[in-house]
Simulated scan of single mutants.
Amino acid sequence: MTATHLMSTDVAAPAERAAVWRDWVWSHFGGLESDLYGDTLFDGHIAASHAGQVVFTKLEANRHRVLRSQRLARSSDTSYLKIVAPWQGSAAVEQHGRQAFVRPGGWAIYDTTGSYEIGNPERVEHLIVMLPREQLTERGLRLEPLMARHVGGASGISRVALEAMRSTWQELPSMSEASACGAGEMVMELVRLSLQELAGKASSATQMEALRDRIRDHIGQHLRDPGLSIEGMALALNCSKRHLHKAFSEEDDTLANHILRRRLQACMRDLKNPAMAGRTITDIAFSWGFNNGAHFSRAFREHTGMAPSEFRQAAWRQSGV
């Protein structure tokens, strides 16, 4: 029978649960920062088990975000491909300038050897699966173009992979060590086949995904420009505004919200950075394309649950600055 490791904030006093959660997330996932959208009340539960080399984690928690910086990724001695497959709630997976939204019935994948951010904007129940990265790269797959993509789960091999991940997790307590190891190898093969199929598709769907990549790249290159607009983007990418909006129509987002969120995330990184202590909040906001302080403050509070000054002070206290 395979062992399951359980963690619950129920054992901690309410005022201590946020700090306890951050410590657990940091240690269990090998160096992962987290924040709670400014919430003061929190509860979360983690259960984890192994199927050979594959690590399965069931996570239940209030809304929260996790972040792995490039520095943390470089300093880690483990290399995994990581899958998030929601049972309840949603996740926004951001890596390599791409962002994939995933809800129950789907899954998305990302690479722990690079920086990434996962947003969980509501209470969630997720299955998180970690697969040894070298097991997939040795088959010749180019991973970078496949990361932060909505792999699927509604049909085909990606659905078989999703059902195998879920059923393996649910049955692990009844498996012998040898059976669990075999189940883990099966999951890795199904994920490999799903990624191989994703890499080989040449359809209108992947052409639209390619346009989304071009849009995201353009936004990333011009994020600091306050004049960044849908009209200018359409002109630069040689397509219509309608086509730009259509490219984002399958995601739980709009282009305007995508730009706003990326600017806010950039401001959050700078506000956390002690090296930016000499810069005012307004200066940081304007450096990332905002041109109205009141609008920035409102948007920042809606995104994080805190005023920019409160967020900065809380981040510095947490880091000991």
Rank of each mutant, 00 (worst) to 15 (best):
I230S: 11
I230T: 02
E231K: 11
E231N: 12
E231G: 08
G232P: 01
L235G: 11
L237P: 02
N238W: 07
C239N: 05
C239Y: 00
S240N: 09
R242I: 11
H243N: 13
L244M: 07
L244Q: 03
H245W: 10
K246Y: 15
A247I: 08
F248M: 10
F248R: 12
F248C: 02
S249L: 06
S249K: 12
S249T: 08
E250L: 09
D253R: 11
T254P: 15
T254L: 07
L255P: 15
L255A: 08
L255Y: 15
A256P: 14
A256T: 11
A256N: 14
N257C: 03
N257H: 10
N257S: 10
H258T: 06
L260D: 03
L260W: 01
R261L: 08
R261D: 12
R261T: 10
R262E: 09
R262L: 08
L264I: 04
L264N: 03
L264V: 01
A266C: 03
C267Q: 06
C267A: 04
M268T: 09
D270E: 15
D270Y: 13
D270K: 14
L271T: 08
L271A: 05
L271R: 08
K272C: 11
P274G: 02
P274E: 06
P274R: 01
A275Q: 12
M276Q: 09
G278N: 13
T280Y: 11
T280A: 14
I281T: 09
T282Q: 14
D283S: 13
D283G: 10
I284P: 02
A285D: 06
F286S: 05
F286P: 00
F286T: 05
S287C: 00
S287G: 01
W288A: 07
G289V: 00
G289F: 07
